[in-house]
Amino acid sequence: MIRRHLPVLITLAVFVVGYLICLAQFPSFASTRVIANLLTDNAFLGIVAVGMTFVILSGGIDLSVGSVIAFTGVFLAVGIEKYDINPYLAFVLILGIAALFGAGMGFLIHAFQIPAFIVTLAGMFLARGMCFVLTTDSIPINAPAYSQITDIAFMLPGGGRLTFIALVMLLTFAAGIVLAHFTRFGANVYALGGNRTSAELMGVPVGRTTVRIYMLSSFLAALAGIVFSFYTSAGYSLAATGVELDTIAAVVIGGTLLTGGYGTIIGTLVGVLIQGLIQTYITFEGTLSSWWTKIAIGALLFAFIVLQRGLSAASGRSSRA
């Protein structure tokens, strides 16, 4: 039991240790304000990471999510500001478009047995290219609905504001946990990541599950894009570049095996928070370049991949003996 959850426990330990280090240096880390901001600042990353966890659990990868976030922002900005579409209608539209986009990628991956890497790479270029077709400028969004939504927040004791977008992220994680661990779809995702051929022989609907996984990922990427547009109040074609890689890093640091089959949604949340923690620390520190975030995450990622390798080698040995 302990062994199975070891990767998540290690992730959690890294987070706790990291937090204590921050706390020792900057006592204000204990305030609800810092914690609430940690959630708000990483809301979009968290949402998209939930989808990515499903993709990676199934043994796939989705490189298109960063571009989908940018496209969502541009679509909303252009739609709301230029064509006066009701923001709520625009949200529904973009979520639908993204879901179709993801379903299309999932279909290609399954029907033609093309590696997910290639299909989603093409998807990444396509979505990014579509941004530039709509506009090359950064368009601010001034719709009143935006300020209304960003004003929603629960005041926490100690001055922290648990914002709407942080709540959306937490709800997404809750839904993701239920979906992964308490539904047939979730079991099928794990089955696909364990061994695709065996899963097929055992009657798992491989095609349907693949389509739904990528649909979910793109849908959540669009939801992350909406959240991101609240956060920045603008749509810009070059936004969220490289977010797909940050997301993959968060998932892997969260204890999900890159080869699929093993991992948890809750681990991904901790993975996202670790990234946020490093970023916050660097902001507090003040003198370090923000690129140190990337370096620290790179080092962590490396450590976790080595750790996973070691763990799976160790469990392979023990089951053979």
Partner: peptide, 8 residues
């Protein structure tokens, strides 16, 4: 070679 899913 047992064709089941060892991760489940």
């Amino acid at each position: 070679e047992v064709n089941l899913l060892s991760n489940l």
